[in-house]
Design a protein around this nucleic acid. Structure first.
Lengths: 135, 135
DNA sequence: CTCTGTGTCATAGCAGACTATGACAGCATG
DNA sequence: CATGCTGTCATAGTCTGCTATGACACAGAG
């Protein structure tokens, strides 16, 4: 799978799973109608407890991203693509706002922050490329 | 004081205090030789427990940012300014890297991320200005 | 029907962060 | 010396996230 969690990222693990599933739906990696990985499979793959994945899936179900198919598993809901595309901007924006605020608070001015961003971007691109290649 | 903590920011409260004290030193708001606010004063001001502030101060002491002055309190160390200025870039960079990576992972390309950043900046500037005015 | 896979629920336990108190030794000020 | 400030330490309790296990009902494949 395309997911990866960091136990000490600040964000709770189940929250990371929720976000990444939404992103996977938004990018089309998980198209509507397709089955999401089973709780047991994903738990094993992420080296995480079954209940942690289950908690994430329950939240995704409540939010309408996933739908339960009796005895089969959880499928991506039909309206999920549009919903996740809209939401991802909001999710990214919120975290971006926090970090930019902290950066300004640290005494760095707008130009310096822009330079840091410009310096990081190539590494991010490279990392993303190697991730896609590894698929 | 110039500090502010968010109980549900993901980051632990004592960690937020450590970071913000370092930033205050880096910006010159807390010059070397000056006394840091007492644990009790800061705890009251942030509506936080005494031990939480104490934990943050202990870490700052271990890292050499603060020095104990027997019976008086904790003073900003002489070499702390240079040290904090170097470190703040690293601290900001680390968080920036995380968020940019998540943003790319969400399927947004570099241009779209740049647009989001550009859209947030004015609000950040405004918030910073009103914070400085309130001093 | 049996077996296996699916999600779901319940319970118990652990660790980290935070809170709530109380107590101590040291120095400065009056 | 006495009072009040400082940091420091210790203990106990709460809450949240995560883990560990076991059990259940349901559906598809053989």
């Amino acid at each position: 799978m395309f997911l990866h969690v960091d136990p000490d990222s600040g964000l709770a693990i189940y929250d990371q799973i929720v976000r990444q599933i939404k992103f996977a739906v938004a990018t089309g990696a998980l198209p509507p109608g397709e089955m999401a990985p089973s709780v047991r499979e994903l738990a094993r793959e992420l080296a995480v407890n079954l209940n942690t994945v289950s908690k994430a899936y329950q939240q995704l179900q409540v939010e309408g991203v996933l739908e339960s198919v009796r005895g089969m598993g959880l499928a991506v809901a039909s309206g999920a693509l549009k919903q996740c595309r809209a939401e991802r901007v909001k999710l990214v924006q919120e975290r971006l706002r926090e970090v930019l605020w902290e950066a300004r608070q640290s005494g760095l001015d707008g130009d310096e922050i822009q330079k840091l961003i410009a310096a990081e971007m190539p590494a991010i691109d490279k990392k993303l490329a190697s991730k896609l290649k590894g698929k």
